[in-house]
Simulated scan of single mutants.
Amino acid sequence: MIRRLVLSGFVLVGAVAFSPNVLAQSVDVIFEGNVGEQCSFATPVPGILVYSGGGTGNPPPNVITSDAPGGISGTVDVSCNTDSANLQISDARFVSFTPADPQFDPPSGTLPPGSDADLDVLATVPGAETDYNGKADGSNSSSGSPMAIFPPPFNTGAPLQQTVEVDLSVDQAGTLEAGIYQYAVTLTIVP
């Protein structure tokens, strides 16, 4: 009996010692990161200009602006992969005029209403701002210094996203015709 027990023990140990290895399995876990451009803009939200009355000057200009009651600032979200990004207003210009009166027929050779206005633009983020001044046709323009999109003190634990608020004021000498005035402001990420 003891012999059988010892013999069975050797058979069991031998089976374990000489059995083929259990097949090892492995798998690769893949990681992928997409580091895009320094910054990117989301789809902008258009602003709304409202009539704010006459200004000062001779003749007094008429003003439509996003700063008056009822006006709305334009906004755009910016996402960056660096906290040292800067933004500048590189252009502001007249786009179109749609008269309220379908019978509106300006004299031949005259400029479209609002296309020769003076434009003042201000872009802001909390803690920083930049400006732009010029004519609606792009002449006589000057841009302010680039502003930091993420001005100090910067919270390094925060996501690198910021909403830029843009305000526009249009000063038109003489009478503003009734209708829809459209302008565009170009923001540019600068190193």
Rank of each mutant, 00 (worst) to 15 (best):
G9M: 13
G9C: 11
F10D: 02
L12I: 14
G14K: 07
F18A: 12
S19H: 11
S19G: 12
N21E: 06
Q25P: 00
V29L: 15
I30P: 09
N34M: 13
C39Y: 01
C39P: 03
T43Y: 09
V45N: 10
V50E: 04
G55L: 08
P60C: 08
A68S: 15
P69S: 14
G70N: 12
G71S: 05
S79R: 11
S84H: 07
N86F: 12
L87P: 03
I89P: 01
D91R: 13
D91T: 03
F94W: 09
F94A: 05
V95F: 03
F97N: 02
P112V: 02
P112S: 06
G114N: 03
G114C: 08
S115R: 05
L122T: 14
V125P: 04
V125A: 05
E129H: 13
E129N: 15
A136L: 08
D137T: 04
G138H: 05
N140R: 11
S145I: 10
M147G: 01
P151I: 10
P153A: 10
P153D: 07
A158L: 10
L160K: 14
Q161S: 14
Q161A: 13
T163N: 04
E165G: 07
D167L: 03
L168M: 02
V170E: 08
V170N: 05
A173R: 13
G174M: 07
G179C: 07
Y183W: 09
A184N: 11
T186V: 14
T186K: 13
T186Y: 05
T188G: 03
I189D: 08
